[in-house]
Design a binder for these strands. Structure first.
Lengths: 115, 115
DNA sequence: CTCATAATTCGATAATCATCGAAATACAGA
DNA sequence: TCTGTATTTCGATGATTATCGAATTATGAG
C-alpha cells in the first residue's frame, strides 16, 4: 500500500473512531447492534435514549457518514441499522494494529473466537 | 452488571474512542504500537510525525489519560509506549458488541485468529 | 388535496478541541 | 551551581462540536 493511501486510511479510521467517540453516539450504535439486523426507527431510538429529535438526527447523520450505520426508508419511517461492513473494517484495523502488526495484544484475550 | 455501571463503562469507552478519533493521535498510537513494547521518546515521535512539541505533549496527555498509552522516565527522556491493557479492553468491548452480543460481524472475518 | 406523523434542516449558542509559540520545569553533566 | 537538552505548562486563538427549539420537508391516509 502506498504511503499516501495508508495516510488516508488512517484519517478515515480516525473519523470512524471519532464518530463512536461520544457517549450518545456509542449508545446509539450499541442499541442498533442489539437490534441487528432489523435496526430501529428513529423515534424509537430517541425514546429509548432520551435524545431530542434534532440532536439525534445529527448523530445518526454522523454515524451514517462514517459508514457505521445505514438507513432504509419504509413509508414515513426511517429504519437505521448497524453497518456490518464498516464495523468489520474498523474492528479488523484495530485488531491488525494491536495483534497482528505489533503483538501488543494477544488474540486469545479478545474473546473466545474458535477452537 | 448494573445499568449505572454499564453506562459509565460506555462513557469511558467513548472517551477512549474519542482519543483515537483524530488522525494525529491515531498515527501516534500506530507508531507506538509498531515500536512496542519499547515505545518511543517524545522527540522521536514528533520528528517522525512532524508535530510541534507542545501539540504533541497535549495529544500524549490525552492518550495517557484515556489509558491508551503509558509513560516511563529515563533520565531526561520520556518513553511513551502503547498500553496493552487498555487496548485489549477496548478491542474486547468492540469485539463483544459486534460479534458476541449482536452477531453483526463474523469473528473469522476480523483476521486469522487460530485454527 | 388536506391532515397528521416522522424526520430533517435551519439558525443559533455555549462548550470543547486542536494548535501554536513562549515561558517554565525536570534532569544530567561539567 | 551553571548549562544544555527534553518535555511540559501557560496563554491565547480559530475551528469544530453538541445541543436545542422552530421551521421545513417527506410520506401516506382519508
Amino acid at each position: 500500500m502506498s504511503p499516501a493511501v495508508e495516510e488516508d486510511l488512517v484519517a478515515r479510521y480516525a473519523d470512524m473512531f471519532s464518530a463512536m467517540g461520544t457517549a450518545p453516539r456509542l449508545r446509539i450504535l450499541r442499541l442498533l447492534l442489539a437490534a441487528h439486523p432489523k435496526g430501529m426507527v428513529v423515534g424509537e431510538i430517541g425514546g429509548e435514549l432520551g435524545i431530542t429529535a434534532s440532536t439525534l438526527s445529527h448523530h445518526l447523520e454522523k454515524l451514517k457518514h462514517e459508514g457505521l450505520v445505514k438507513v432504509r426508508r419504509e413509508g414515513t419511517f426511517l429504519w437505521y441499522s448497524a453497518n456490518a461492513d464498516g464495523l468489520r473494517e474498523l474492528l479488523g484495523f484495530l485488531y491488525a494494529e494491536c495483534c497482528t502488526r505489533s503483538g501488543a495484544v494477544e488474540p486469545e484475550s479478545i474473546g473466545k473466537v474458535c477452537c
